[in-house]
Nucleic acid binder design. Structure first.
Lengths: 337, 337
DNA sequence: ATGAAAGCGCTAACAC
DNA sequence: GTGTTAGCGCTTTCAT
């Protein structure tokens, strides 16, 4: 690969002049300009961004660390970020943690070593201290989707508890009282918050929480499928009239389990979902769900980090941005009253 | 951020010794080792991979360039690649071209400047010459999914024409003769090959190709939706009995259009698909489809590039690997005979 | 407007 | 087993 030195030699100018021509940030004579351009063309020269990054202490790369990159929810966040940061010349490195805290930390350390300019993180961490350590080492982080207390970073999150309350409250208004919940790992803020919204709604309507209708596990389709399958098995003679799944993939898993058990939705068991399933237009019945604006969440995160980066605004205290979401009532809830 | 120099100073050794300790590739005394480790710990030192990359002319990054990163098909390829290359310490940079040739070239140039060690490319290019130019400049490329003639790279592809033939042949065996096709952009190899498989199957059964049932456009859900909607409109009084969509997303778009037109699948119009739709378990009827092994395609690409990279086997002539796929018969085809 | 040269943080050849 | 040092390819200050 040709270097700036070879270009300089061929164009009969110094490397400084080549650099100036290439970056267009200093005045150069038309003559020098033409010679350099010719040489560049002839040699098929391409800037070595690694060298440039080293010199300028800037990589134009953004790390994205999420629990599950195949979840369309996170994919949409990625596209939102990409859409805004690409305009400023940044590229994205995607990483998937599979909800494993050790893997998350390993990936963050890797990105730190790669000197990415910023990391967008949807965390599965229970505690913030190791994260704070990385930040102290100089890593720029913005946290999306999840929330971690006592961490000096910006957050872009949803109003999980209230939205969860809202959808469960709706279910209750349709006459349901035996409402099972399929939730994620309780260490994670979103799972905790969605759970408390659910509990609060039950409580406000004097409905007691039934442990036996409740299952927990990773935010994955398969896990939810297995758990719901077993839950149905266990309660075969006194099934819940409704299942509330707290993320898109769990809803899919729950639906598959319900159908496989020979039960109908919503005639036998109604469904509500925090987050739209994939392809909601093609699946019958249409699922009543909290519709998350993940794209907007990504865009917001992108804007914030660009702002920090371009204006070199270092963080004094964390800002928390809340992305709005809507309850979309469709027809997966049977009216019982 | 601490540098190796500061570590060396604090540990009272040379930078060379620090490097040796950190990389463990040369013998060091236990004493030096301990001192260095202490200093590393104290300073929170993290290797600057940018500097290392510059020195070693190796970035441990792989670029992935595909038409549409939100398509689960390409996502699976990505996971396949990731799974194998991550074991060797490589990370992935994802890029989406939206099937625009200019964007594809721009991204490839960017990755070249970033000096990624390899690029995995699903191309939307019509011609190979500009690509060959990049390769001559030193970019390592492996092409997946698509095929481009006269290009000195390895390929991992499907047997598109034969598989396409197979599924259309099956449709014909069920008594269908009015079979519309929803296809991608004809510049792209996969679209061309799937089209010829379709045509050949018709021909072998003396069925004439009906232009009016055929629509083309980008491999996207929305485009297919619009096109099929119009096609149905135009042929309202003499509809095809079957629609063959040549990729997963087009099938989804076609199904939505059919349903919206008040038609039933498969009673009014049958469906066959090249590639499984998202969530095939939850959509009724279950779609008869070519089931692509995209994960395997990604793994294969990963293995090949690792092999080239680690064994420094430069490419003499292109190898072509064909990934097998299966026809899965389900119940989206009405039997007419 | 242009060139010489220092230096970003690292590795490895060479000398001891 | 360890230190010295050159140099990867670039930008930028300083001098002219």
């Amino acid at each position: 690969m040709a270097t700036i030195k070879q270009v300089a030699a061929l164009a009969n100018v110094s490397t400084a002049t080549v650099s100036r021509v290439l970056n267009g940030n200093y005045p150069v004579s038309k003559e020098a300009f033409d010679h350099v351009m010719d040489a560049v063309e002839q040699l098929g020269y391409r800037t070595n961004q690694i060298a440039k990054s080293l010199k300028m202490n800037k990589t134009f790369m953004i790390g994205l660390v999420v629990p599950d990159i195949s979840n369309p929810y996170f994919m949409e966040i990625a596209r939102g970020i990409e859409q805004v940061v690409s305009r400023y010349g940044y590229s994205l490195i995607f990483c998937s943690t599979d909800e494993e805290p050790e893997k998350e930390l390993r990936l963050l350390r890797l990105l730190n070593e790669k000197r990415v300019d910023f990391v967008v993180l949807a965390s599965s961490l229970k505690e913030a201290d190791l994260l704070q350590q990385l930040i102290d080492q100089g890593l720029n982080i913005i946290v999306v989707d999840t929330y971690l207390p006592n961490l000096k970073v910006d957050f872009v999150v949803e109003d999980n508890e209230n939205l969860s309350y809202k959808i469960v409250d709706y279910a209750i208004s349709q006459g349901h009282t035996k409402i099972g919940i399929v939730n994620g790992i309780m260490d994670i803020s979103t799972a905790k918050e969605r759970n408390s919204g659910y509990l609060k709604a039950l409580e406000d309507h004097q409905i007691s929480f039934e442990e036996r209708y409740s299952v927990n596990g990773g935010y994955y389709r398969d896990i939810a499928y297995q758990n719901v399958k077993q839950m149905i098995q266990r309660n075969r003679h006194d099934l819940p009239t409704m299942i509330y799944a707290t993320n898109n993939q769990m809803t899919e898993g729950a639906m598959i389990a319900i159908r496989e058990a020979g039960l109908r939705i919503p005639e036998d068991i109604s469904i509500i979902s925090y987050g739209d399933i994939t392809l909601p237009q093609l699946v019958e019945p249409r699922i009543t769900a909290i519709q998350q604006n993940s794209r907007v969440m990504g865009e917001k995160a992108g804007e914030i980090l660009i702002n920090r980066l371009e204006n070199k605004r270092s963080i004094i205290e964390s800002d928390i941005y809340v992305i709005s979401s809507d309850l979309i009532v469709r027809n997966s809830v049977r009216r019982l009253t």
